[in-house]
Simulated assay, not measured.
Amino acid sequence: MEQSPDTHHDLMAWLRLEQTPGVGNESARRLLARFGLPAQIFAAGHAALSEVVTPRLAKALLASPSDFQQQLDKTLAWQEQPDNRILTLADADYPRALLEIPDPPLMLYVKGRAALLGAATIAVVGSRNATVQGIRNAEQFSASLSSAGLCISSGLAAGIDAAAHQGGLTGPGSTIAVIGTGADIVYPARNRNLAHLIAGGGCIVSEYSLGTPALAPNFPRRNRIISGLAKGVLVVEAAAQSGSLITARMAAEQGREVFAIPGSIHSPLSKGCHQLIRQGAKLVESAQDILEELQLQSITLSAQTKSRGVTKETSDVGLLKEISFDPVHMDMLASRTGIDIASLATELLSLELNGQLEALPGGYYRRLA
């Protein structure tokens, strides 16, 4: 899309404001409130700027950022590519939901279907080191919510995030990936194929300038966008110190609903969810619970919510009856059933391959269906 001279000039001013060292979202918003658009900020003198920010920052604003022309050229070239857009706080298409949060991003780099940023959205987050059941829950809940027309927002991380995006892509609601790098970088690299699918059927969004690498502080910060775009946040699995709890806290501060899926009292990845539930998060067992809580149109959960390849007849007989949803050690199973270890190992492997149980470290197993 060819840029008009005025549009080019406006983007240049916004990018310069973003790139000025020491200017964060808060100081940028103060400057915008005082002077108007970024071009008017840079037209102001040092004395006027110093009434809003420190004299040192005023001096930085009046000096061109280092390598600015190179960053501008890269940004303009990126924006020319199909389905790439840059939205600023002054853009009419900037998502209204983000204008409601305390710290809206100055600029959004969007790749894919930018219209999804205005859709009814549910955030689905959780552990990077998720269990098999956690992955299934994330994908199945997201697929059901997407089939009801809700967009799924998450962070493109490994584990729960990736499963949530995959589930979201199966329905009309689709998915939004909010990333902690520049929009021209895929992190983690293992999610490259998934990122391409999201760019084609959903959208990828970042507040960070092009070329920004994976820096640890950026990931907790982007969580406010994941929750800010959404009506509520579903935490699928989370350890007691999980970053997902940061997203849940931000959601509560933003006035969004917080939902959590309970799990085994023995699982470290259930402790974060249980903590949220004790603090007032809504306990949910199905996507329907979320839709009802948000007073959205109800749906009939499909066979996607049932474990793959498992029937009532197979799940209620034999060895599987001795395995609960809490972990049990192989030796205990041998004691209960009288089956020798070699035969037991064979049967356990068969059940695992059928998706009926999960093998845990240390010789433990737990039931999935």
Rank of each mutant, 00 (worst) to 15 (best):
K231L: 12
K231W: 15
R278T: 07
I226M: 05
I226C: 08
V258M: 05
L269W: 06
S227E: 00
A240M: 05
G272I: 10
E257I: 11
H274R: 11
P268E: 00
G255M: 14
Q275Y: 08
R278Q: 07
G263M: 06
P268N: 03
A240K: 15
S267A: 08
A230R: 03
S242K: 14
A239V: 10
H274S: 11
A238H: 00
V235Y: 06
A238T: 02
A252Y: 01
L276F: 14
Q275C: 00
L276C: 12
S267L: 08
E253S: 01
I265Y: 13
R278A: 03
S270A: 12
I261E: 08
L245Q: 05
H274K: 15
A239R: 10
R249F: 02
S227L: 06
C273P: 04
P268Y: 06
P268K: 01
E257T: 14
A248C: 10
H266K: 10
A260L: 10
H274L: 08
E257K: 13
I277H: 07
R278M: 05
S242N: 08
Q275S: 06
Q254W: 09
G228P: 07
A230Y: 04
G232S: 12
S270T: 07
G272S: 08
S270R: 06
S227I: 12
C273R: 13
K271C: 09
